[in-house]
Nucleic acid binder design. Structure first.
Length: 302
DNA sequence: GAGGCGTGGTG
DNA sequence: TCACCAAGCCT
């Protein structure tokens, strides 16, 4: 399978900036931004960041509020704060250089098994077992014959990925990148382009007659949740340059057409003269959002 | 180990 | 239209 995927990858791989001549720091930033966020939205922000903060020390010195603003609308802003903390550790414990091995990468905040393996492989050419959602899906179809991988990563999947990894270090790096790209462009979650697949002939899922998924992926609720409130709060704060009053949050939520959010923030507005109740309500509604506000130097009314 | 965490494009 | 989905991590 290696040669077919490699040939396809050489011809079809996307020309992404972090795949060109790029520092380990640039690779790390890209991997964090790409956690659950599509490439098309990451690319312009990544360009901005690398120009503004070309090395970990530059980024570590920036105020948290600026980090969150620069993060823009990539989503999951806690990733930005964790990367900020990681840059601090890189400066303090690694002399300002991104560590070049899996174990030390894994110890950084916001860096899990996937990101540690990916940075070790793509920034430092290490032979590591990279397993992301694309690779899991390709393995599930190509090797196992199932439409989708299990809901959560299993030990068996890790063992399979380790078994498939080429022994040669340089080939292992190309294999990781190629399988991931195949999952992103051809072997997609919905409507895979099997007609363009370089390993169609060897695919266990095709051989089995493309059976349907054996479970139903469960969606994440959004309307009326704390996350929706946090999203509205963060949208206001990104645009603000000074401490934000709760009234402003409510007005903004209403103006943005978020009736559920405005209703919840309206409760806070009514409670504004009763500080203890306000604190309790805020703690229940926007606990993480408040932590981010505090980290970013913002204040809520007393 | 299941659930929480932002955001916007798309079939 | 509205679920689903996008290079996960942490608790």
């Amino acid at each position: 399978m290696y040669s077919e995927i490699q040939e396809w990858f050489s011809a079809e791989a996307r020309d992404l900036p972090w795949r060109r001549d790029c520092s380990a720091w640039g690779i790390l930033v890209s991997e964090i931004m790409l956690q659950q966020t599509p490439v098309v939205r990451v690319q312009p922000v990544w360009e901005e960041w690398l120009e503004r903060w070309p090395a970990p020390a530059d980024f570590a010195a920036a105020p948290a509020a600026e980090v969150l603003r620069a993060w823009g609308r990539l989503g999951y802003p806690r990733r930005a704060l964790r990367l900020h903390a990681a840059a601090g550790e890189i400066v303090e414990r690694h002399g300002g250089a991104v560590p070049d091995n899996y174990e030390e990468l894994l110890s950084l905040p916001g860096v899990g098994t996937y990101t540690a393996a990916a940075v070790a492989a793509f920034a430092f050419g290490r032979r590591t077992t990279v397993v992301d959602t694309n690779i899991r899906r390709v393995h599930a179809r190509l090797v196992i014959g199932q439409a989708l991988p299990a809901p959560a990563l299993t030990a068996a999947e890790m063992a399979l990925a380790a078994d498939l990894l080429p022994e040669d270090t340089a080939e292992s790096v190309q294999w990781n990148a190629g399988v991931m790209e195949l999952g992103a462009l051809i072997c997609t979650a919905r409507s895979p382009k099997c007609g363009e697949c370089p390993v169609l002939e060897q695919c266990a899922w095709i051989a089995a007659g493309q059976p349907e998924p054996t479970y139903i992926p469960k969606g994440q609720p959004w309307a009326g949740t704390d996350r929706q409130v946090r999203g509205a709060v963060m949208a206001v704060l990104r645009a603000a340059s000074s401490p934000v009053h709760a009234d402003l949050l409510w007005n903004a939520a209403e103006a943005q057409g978020h009736p559920e959010v405005a209703k919840e923030l309206g409760k806070l507005h009514e409670l504004n003269t009763h500080a203890p109740q306000l604190e309790r309500a805020l703690a229940g509604l926007v606990a993480d959002g408040l932590a981010q506000l505090s980290d970013a130097g913002y204040q809520l009314p007393a």
